[in-house]
Write a protein that binds this DNA or RNA. Structure first.
Lengths: 201, 201
DNA sequence: GCCCCGCCATGACAAATGTCATCCAGGATC
DNA sequence: GATCCTGGATGACATTTGTCATGGCGGGGC
């Protein structure tokens, strides 16, 4: 019997997952939560065989939670289920030692199969998402450029970004400009959008 | 037996819903789809008692689908299930004659109850979302302002927006400026964000 | 009819943004 | 130690923006 920890922020979807996977022979849902930090705590406490995490959750996002679980509950295998096929997410997940990565576009049967595969020490990456990630170049932005993009994401003016990061306005403009060039877009707002779409932000 | 049409774009979530609601006594899922246009077609063809629609779907979004179903399959009662509690969405849904509006944060039991309530001719609005919509002012933007905001949403420069809408650049700047003022934000990009958050865009 | 409002358009000016040449510090290389 | 390179930082300059005052046009409402 595979002991499964389930983390997904929407009650309804989570409840549906529990119903679905609870019916699956060989799988037992031992805990469920809607928060990432909560998921880490439960993984440490209950030591499930597999933790299945959504990405966007309050408290701690699924990728960060995966990293923490890998450190604090090493026996627990982690898989990510997400609606957003951002290529960068897959990269981060791999770096965190995640063993399964599937989109919410898959069938329930496929999901159960992946859970078992992951439990048996295997790996499974959604082929479509994997293709995206492989054909895609590495994030070309430097840490500083990412910082400024992040700070600019709310539409904040350069002056505020500069204050926030304790930089001169000129410097901020430079980083943004260089990000815009690298991403081949027209201005920083488009750059923010693009970086976010890629899962880099 | 309530005949239910289910429309939700993620296979996995949809499958889970089917499993969940199929187990519910008195409810029978007669059709399921991941596309809005498909949902309209199925509603017309199968005449289910209740159609349960997600908002973000390919083909036709849930709100537009709701409008079409109200016209083309009047006997079918429509309810919306969504992850995004944008106040504007609720408004549009009400205008389309939707009889149920719930967030994905609810429990499965609550969902089944709402389905039955809607089927019996009642209405149900998620109290939390309703409160948001009521405390919130109507969208203050003119159609033209919305057009320009929409065109600006990708981070496009004014020149391109002007070409797209066949307006002079000055006019575009005017609309955007007025939108920025009305929404009390710092620039058009923040205005786009805000309008989108409100469900106005 | 008259007035108001939304829509379209100009021009001018101030402020924010994008671009570029340049410089510095530290690590890698030879 | 001299050199090269990269990421980080800066200020000057051109361009793009946001803002404001203004005016014309057409359709509803009174």
């Amino acid at each position: 019997m595979i002991k499964l920890l389930l983390a997904e922020d929407h009650h309804l979807v989570r409840g549906a997952f529990v119903a679905l996977l609870g019916a699956e022979p060989g799988i037992e849902v031992v805990a469920e939560t809607g928060r990432g930090d909560e998921a880490v705590r439960l993984a440490v406490e209950l030591r499930p065989d597999v933790a299945m995490l959504d990405i966007d959750m309050p408290g701690l996002d699924g990728l960060a939670a995966a990293e923490r679980i890998a450190q604090e509950a090493p026996g627990c295998r982690v898989m990510i289920v997400t609606a957003h096929g951002r290529p960068g997410y897959l990269r981060r997940a791999m770096a965190a030692g995640v063993r399964g990565f599937v989109g919410k576009d898959n069938s329930a049967a496929a999901l159960a199969k992946v859970i078992k595969q992951v439990h048996d020490g295997g790996r499974y990456i959604d082929p479509e998402l994997a293709a995206d990630a492989l054909t895609m170049e590495e994030c070309p932005l430097t840490p500083r450029e990412l910082d400024t993009l992040r700070a600019a994401s709310g539409g904040a003016p350069v002056s505020r970004i500069a204050r926030e990061l304790s930089l001169s306005e000129g410097t901020v403009r430079n980083y943004l400009s260089s990000a815009v060039t690298k991403l081949a877009v027209e201005n920083r707002h488009a750059a923010v959008r693009r970086a976010r779409d890629m899962g880099w932000l």
